[in-house]
Amino acid sequence: MTTQVLNSRVNKTMNKTKLSFLILLLVGLVAPFAIYPVFLMKLLCFALFACAFNLMLGYGGLLSFGHAAFLATGGYITGHTIMQWGLTPELGVLAGTLCSAGMGFIFGKLAIRRQGIYFAMITLALSQLVFFLYVQTPFTGGENGLQGIPRGELFGLFSLEGNLPMYYFVLAVFVIGFAVIYRTIHSPFGQILKAIRENEPRAVSLGYDVDKFKLVAFVISAALAGLAGSTKSLVFQLASLTDAHWHMSGEVILMTLLGGVGTIFGPIVGAATVVTLQNYLSQGPLASWVPVILGLIFVICVLLFRSGIVGEIQKFMKKNFN
C-alpha cells in the first residue's frame, strides 16, 4: 500500500514537471515572433551549456572549472568540418559533439580521482592547456577565430540561412539535449549518481565503482557542452577564442548557481538572466560595468539565496503550498 502511495506521489510530481515542459516548449515555439530570434538562440545555447554543467555539479557533485574547453571544441570542430570538409550542419554539430565527448573522456580520466578543489584545479589547468593549443594551432584561426561559417542546409534539404528556420533547429537541439539530461538524472544511472553525491564512501561500500560513474557523467556533460558550442558556432557563424577562455568556465558556474544548482530548470533561468543582462546592459551606458554588475549579483546570490532563483522558489512553494 505504501508503495502505491509513493508511486502516486511520484506520478504527481512527474505530471507537474511534464506540464512545465509542455508550457516551456509552447513558449519556445512562439517566442521568435515576439523576441529577436538571434538573442533567443544565444540564450538557448547558453541554457544548454549550463544544463550540461549542472549535470556535473548538481547531480554528480563535482565542480568542473574547465567546461569552456568543451564549448570551444564543439564550436571549432563544427566550424572546421563544415568549412573545410563541406559537411551538412547536422553532421558538423555531431562531429563537434563527439570530439567534445572524447576530450571529456581524457579530462575525466585525469581529473576524476581527485575531489573538491583539486578536481576544479585540474580541470582548469587542462582547459588552459586546450586554450593555448587553440591559440597556436592553425585550424582554429588563432586570434581571428573561424569566421563566416555557413549555416548550410539541414540534411542537405532545408536552408538554415534565415533566422527563423535556424531558431527552430536550435530549439530542437536544445530539446534533445535537455531530454538527454532529464533522462540521465531520472535513470538507474542517475540514482547511483545521486547516491555518490550524497555519500560517496557508502556508495563504495555498496559495491559501486564510483570513479566509473563519475566518468560517464563527465563525458555526457562534456558532450552536451560541446553540442551547445557547436550549435552556437552555427548561430553566430563564428568560433572564437572567447569560448575557450576560462572566463567562460566561470560564467557557466555563475549561471548555474544563480539559477539553482541541482534543479532541473535552474540553469535555464540562470542562463536567461545572465544573457539578458549582458545583452541589455551592453547597449546602454553601463556597458563597461557588465562584469561588475554580474559580480555583484553573484555575491548577493551566494550571500542571500544560496539555492539560486529556482531553488528559492521551490523552497517557497514547499513552505506555503504543501
Binding site: 509513493l6 538507474p188 544511472f189 547511483i192 550524497e198
Partner: peptide, 26 residues
C-alpha cells in the same frame, strides 16, 4: 536526501546490472 525506499533500492539495483544505463527510465 533520498527517500528511505530509494536508499534500499540503490543497494538492490546493482544486481540488475543496469546501473550504467543512463538512457533507461528510473
Amino acid at each position: 536526501h533520498l527517500s528511505v525506499l530509494d536508499n534500499v533500492r540503490i543497494a538492490l539495483q546493482r544486481k540488475l546490472g543496469t546501473s550504467f544505463h543512463f538512457w533507461k527510465s528510473e
